[in-house]
C-alpha cells in the first residue's frame, strides 16, 4: 500500500512538472552562440574592426552549433553577408548556399543575392574568350 502511494505520488509530481515545463517551455531549440549580444556590440561601434569581430563570432557560433545540428535560422546567411562586406565573395557564396540548403524559406532571397554575386564576378575574373561553355 505504501509502495503504491509512493508511486502514485511520484507520478503526480512528475506529470505536474511536465505540464509546468511544457506550458512555459523554455528549452532553447538553437545554439545562438551569443548572437544578440555580438550583434549589439557591432551596432554600438560599426567599424571594420567590429565587423570582423562580429563575423568571427558568427563563424565560431556556426561551428559549435553544427556539432549538434542546431544552427539557428538566418545564421549562415548572416555570416555570408559579413564575408561579402569584408570582400570575400567566395566564402559568402558558400554560406548563402548553406542557408539555401537548410531553410526553404530563405531560398528566394538567397537566390537573389547569389545572382547578384555572379553578375559581379566577371569584373573580378580575368577576361577570357567567349567560346568556352
Amino acid at each position: 500500500m505504501k509502495l503504491v502511494s509512493m508511486k502514485c505520488c511520484k507520478f503526480i509530481v512528475f506529470t505536474v512538472l511536465i505540464i509546468m515545463t511544457s506550458a512555459c517551455g523554455n528549452k532553447s531549440m538553437y545554439n545562438w552562440g551569443g548572437y544578440s549580444n555580438n550583434l549589439l556590440g557591432y551596432y554600438k561601434n560599426m567599424d571594420d574592426e567590429q565587423l570582423q569581430k562580429f563575423s568571427d563570432s558568427l563563424y565560431e557560433g556556426i561551428e559549435k552549433a553544427e556539432i549538434k545540428d542546431n544552427v539557428p535560422p538566418g545564421m549562415y546567411a548572416e555570416y555570408g553577408y559579413t564575408k561579402l562586406e569584408l570582400n570575400d565573395a567566395n566564402t559568402a557564396a558558400i554560406y548563402f548556399q548553406k542557408e539555401w540548403d537548410k531553410w526553404p524559406e530563405s531560398r528566394f532571397l538567397m537566390e537573389k543575392v547569389m545572382k547578384r554575386l555572379t553578375t559581379m564576378a566577371p569584373e573580378q575574373t580575368t577576361p577570357s574568350t567567349t567560346g568556352e561553355m
Binding site: 538553437y30 550583434l39 535560422p73 538566418g74 548572416e78
Partner: peptide, 11 residues
C-alpha cells in the same frame, strides 16, 4: 526563431 519561425538574417 525559438517560437518556431524562419527569421530572416536580421543584420
Amino acid at each position: 526563431s525559438e517560437k518556431g519561425y524562419y527569421v530572416f538574417p536580421t543584420n
